[in-house]
Design a protein around this nucleic acid. Structure first.
Lengths: 236, 236
DNA sequence: CGCACACTTCGGCGGGCGCCGAACTGTGCG
DNA sequence: CGCACAGTTCGGCGCCCGCCGAAGTGTGCG
């Protein structure tokens, strides 16, 4: 009983960090995988700098964020891929109900860039992420029927792309991440991150503004069609 | 911005449900996969019945719990496997730090039954869960090197056991679930649930008390040794 | 029926927490 | 230097929320 009590206290403490709208907004913003300054986050959330500072202190103390001080700036980012996954999972749990379709076309337009393509911390999501995942599966590079794992051919494919996959720590080579716009799993893990990095490096897609949305370039359309047989229409 | 705001509000609202120690205790208790009455949970958490009632109302309204009324009893259970996974993931995130080893031998003894073997909602965890997962992997029935998926031989093995695996909805056949005592992944998903159910049905293990802990029986030791080559010592 | 019991509703209390502005620290720049 | 600016600390305000006990509802049982 005592041990379950302390377990409950810890669980509640962790959830408390996310249970505030301002802090939740910070975490969602940081899902782009980059480091933000305290001031940027404060403006993004519409709170005073002092308020943001206190929130960041809690999130760092709670192990959800990592910080890096540079001069008079305090940069923060999600602590690691595991925290990012947790935030994604929580967000995915919410949106099914909050997925109430936007009423106005304007609002629909605002969300549709995110729906077309975005990053999930360090891998691709949205229609773009799903298209890539489906293509890999169709080509026999990824198995989804009995779990979620690359095939040996899949590992070779990444090597052929010039992006060898190296396991780091406990992170799996391939992992399923639930997509909150498509309601299906897309590729995460080491392979998902490697592919996303390569896509950005090679100019297959570029970030839009300061949000998580990405846009597929003409070069990207050609590369995805050639390498994975993805029809450009799929991505629009 | 507006859309990210509402996303943050939803995320915070979900986390708020878990951010209370009493409600967190309910969720952890319900991780045994069974239905509890409101009164049982109230006593378990040490709060008044009226307090528990209010908490249950929120958890049900938030979609985390499903309820079933029978006469004057209100039975609640976790809404589905997805919620169970979320709670497990959150709990796993906490315990690495809270894994501070218990000081007294008495406390160590209390926790060790859970560490030896327990259920995680509907599949096996603890040393028992890890041993089974490792054995399946060693026999080539489960692949963990490139993700987490059963092999074709693995699917056949379950059929041979008399437990055919049927996919229901989106739930994957095999999924990795992070074990908070062993700090490694064990088998979850349809296969994990089927194996756990079979283990309980066939008397390989029995539940201890009203908690999640399970104990491997003599019959279970023989079956696990014969079918998977698991040494009984591994489980003690 | 009428009692026992599980659960719910309500009012009220108290503590915790998020918010801000003002004052302070520390960094960069001219 | 001295100013501008990022971030922090602090005090105080107000609200939200979890808690309880008392009263109310509905079910089962003798």
């Amino acid at each position: 009983m005592t041990s379950s009590r302390t377990g409950a206290a810890g669980l509640a403490a962790l959830a408390s960090l996310v249970a505030d709208e301002t802090r939740a907004g910070f975490l969602l913003a940081l899902l782009d995988g980059r480091a933000w300054t305290a001031g940027e986050l404060a403006r993004h959330a519409g709170v005073a700098a002092s308020t943001a500072s206190e929130h960041l202190g809690k999130l760092v103390a709670g192990g959800l964020l990592a910080e890096e001080r540079q001069g008079r700036h305090r940069y923060v980012r999600l602590a690691d891929a595991r925290v990012a996954q947790l935030v994604e999972d929580l967000a995915a749990q919410v949106t099914p109900s909050a997925a109430a379709r936007p009423r106005t076309l304007r609002a629909a337009g605002a969300g549709s860039a995110m729906a077309r393509g975005r990053t999930c911390y360090d891998h691709l999501a949205g229609r773009l992420g799903i298209a890539v995942t489906d293509a890999l599966t169709g080509l026999g590079l990824l198995r989804q029927d009995t779990g979620f794992a690359l095939t040996d051919e899949g590992v070779s494919w990444f090597e052929g792309l010039g992006v060898p996959l190296v396991r780091t720590g406990r992170r799996p080579l391939a992992r399923a991440c639930l997509d909150w716009t498509e309601r299906r799993s897309h590729l995460a893990g080491v392979a998902g991150a490697a592919l996303c990095r390569h896509a950005l490096d090679a100019g297959w897609c570029v970030r839009i503004g300061s949000e998580r949305a990405v846009k597929v370039t003409g070069r990207g359309e050609r590369a995805l069609a050639e390498l994975l047989g993805i029809q450009p229409d799929t991505l629009r």
